[in-house]
Amino acid sequence: MSTAAASTAWTKVRQQPSALARLFDNKAFLIVVCLLPAVGLLMTFLTYPLGLGVWLAFTDQTIGRPGVWIGIENFEFLFEDPIFWSAVFYSVFYTAVATVGKFALGLWLALLLNQHLPMKSLLRAIILLPWIVPTVLSAIAFWWIYDPQFSIISWALMEMGLRETPVDFINSPWSARWSLIAANIWRGIPFVAISLLAGLQTISPSLYEAALLDGASPWQRFRHITFPMLMPILAIVMTFSIIFTFTDFQLVYSITRGGPVNSTHLMATLAFQRGIPGGQLGEGAAIAVAMIPFLVFATLFSYFALARRKWQQGESND
């Protein structure tokens, strides 16, 4: 801009913005407008249903008939119901085993990927695939892999002479439970591996050099450098993983639908079965509400037990 133009602009009265523009310049108004869509949607379709769900758990509502308050009768009924307890047991078992498996294998994969490798980014892209593909669709592939007659795993084992008969994957309770856990671990590894890899890459190499000079063994380097430095990310990823494994629905529903004889019901699939096809909305809601204490406990545990280190060091939790 030339000096002449600048000096004229200096004396010119600034053009007044229109009333609408001025309204949008009002900070309080702008804050409300900006937050309204997100907060409105979340309030209507998340907070309200959460409350409604808790209320439904204390009613006998069925599909097509509004419920009346029946106190804790739903919970009393569930307390006597062996299928409910088996679902609680399997949910806890499923979450515990799958989480341990996912994190052990995921951490191992992350450590492998953190080495010098050719085609690193391509590898990462491929490894994330199981996580990208819709769960139900890969679950159907697992269902086919677990087929009692035409399972490819059975075929391979029989070809190698390790077994005479096809493996029974999903037709008896315990083998079905383990097969589902295996499928869940398969799906969870990529996410854990890639997020832990991000954590690994933030660890400064100079720490390892110093440890090496002090004569630390590979295990000591892992135990005293890698692991503690990874803790904050591990805590967050684990919280998420535990919550979404505990409330898992898709995998079990696609592969076994809770069978054989209700042995693989998770709390979510049982809630669905009782609530939507069964029509007992109140009872389904009660099962769903019964998940909340477990979730709160898991969140608090993984957050405080694992992330403690972070705030002990006085870092700001920004």
Binding site: Y48, P49, M267, A271, A288, V289
Partner: peptide, 15 residues
């Protein structure tokens, strides 16, 4: 984000 859909689908269905 920590509220999973498995808890919400029954009340949401009635809504």
């Amino acid at each position: 984000y920590l509220v999973p859909p498995s808890i919400l689908f029954i009340p949401l269905a009635t809504m």
